[in-house]
């Protein structure tokens, strides 16, 4: 799905304080590298222009020079100096960007699954999937875990990426400095749908974030619309509840697939592959494999009417 309202995806589109430091270091390193590349290219061009064998060459051999110790010391010392400077800057930026975490509790726990993302806000008691929110101007501590294979979390405009490795929780700080919708994709090859395991980060003002949290905490109202009531029954009697959770629906408490408690609030389905609306949700349930081949959700054997009812139920979960 083409997400049109997203911010420009580039590591130079600085959306976090951390990425500001990374980008500064990036320009500095890039300038040095471009300079060296120009020097080497320039020297090669000069050599080609100056030392081609002349037309009327007498066949004699040029002067045979073994080496030049002074020159060799210079071209060892200057690179050494450059890498020393880069080494010092590396240490400074590393410590500024990712200071030691100690025993701090993370603000957001991200769990990579094949092929979707689970987001938990342990301090706020919220669990959601695939689209998450951050308040602007607040340094947020992330923790990454994996439920299956190695994934890597990379919101491009936040700069850094961090792997999610089974049995090895990792951390990263993100201090968003501008609001907007920022995209990313899983960056460690994780199997069939690696390329469509998208990340959608919404950075919003604090008040808006608080409102979002409130909504996430609220238990959705029980359906009253007859189609939605039928949908809920079907949802609970079909195999949906073997994997999915919906708060307030005591039959649906499984934690294998994405939490669907407030699915109607999300913009996309299938981790960013489809726009979220009743029609797409219905098609998705009838055969998710057409949109995301290899996805772990099986093809549900639902009639059009059944799928429609379940879709209406889920789309009522605001």
């Amino acid at each position: 799905m083409d997400i049109k309202n997203a911010d420009f995806t580039s590591i130079f589109n600085v959306a976090s304080l951390q990425n500001r430091h990374l980008v500064d270091l990036h320009w500095f390193t890039l300038a040095i590298c471009v300079l060296i590349a120009f020097v080497v290219t320039g020297l090669l061009i000069a050599v080609i222009a100056k030392f081609r064998t002349p037309e009327n060459d007498d066949g004699s051999e040029p002067r045979q020079i073994q080496g030049n110790i002074r020159l060799e010391i210079i071209w060892t010392a200057i690179p050494l100096l450059i890498v020393t400077v880069l080494g010092v800057l590396t240490a400074i930026v590393m410590l500024v960007v990712n200071p030691p975490v100690g025993n701090k509790q993370p603000d957001v726990v991200v769990i990579g699954h094949q092929w979707w993302w689970e987001y938990r806000y342990p301090k706020l008691g919220v669990t959601t999937a695939n689209e998450f929110y951050l308040p602007v101007g607040k340094n947020t501590l992330f923790e990454f875990r994996s439920a299956d294979v190695v994934h890597s979390f990379w919101v491009i405009a936040f700069g850094q990426k961090m792997d999610a490795i089974p049995g090895h929780p990792t951390n990263m700080w993100v201090h968003p400095i501008k609001t907007g919708k920022f995209l990313g994709t899983c960056s460690e090859y994780c199997g069939a749908q690696h390329g469509l395991m998208r990340i959608i980060a919404n950075v919003v003002p604090q008040e808006e974030f608080d409102t979002w949290i409130e909504k996430q905490r609220a238990v959705p109202e029980q359906p009253t619309d007859p189609a939605a009531v039928r949908g809920k029954e079907l949802f609970n009697s079909a195999t949906c509840v073997e994997c999915h959770r919906v708060a307030g629906n005591e039959d649906a408490q499984a934690l294998i697939g994405p939490d669907l408690t407030h699915i109607a609030q999300r913009e996309t389905l299938g981790t960013g592959v489809l726009a979220n609306n009743t029609e797409n949700l219905k098609k998705w349930m009838q055969n998710p494999q057409t949109f995301k081949p290899g996805v772990n959700m099986p093809k549900m054997r639902l009639t059009d009417e059944e799928a429609q009812d379940i879709a209406v139920y889920l789309e009522s979960l605001k």
Partner: peptide
Amino acid sequence: TIGGLSGVAFAVIPLDWQLTD
């Protein structure tokens, strides 16, 4: 030389965080 210089970007860890994978 270009390949070597882009390699330096991976030794500078903060740039590696941006560019790896």
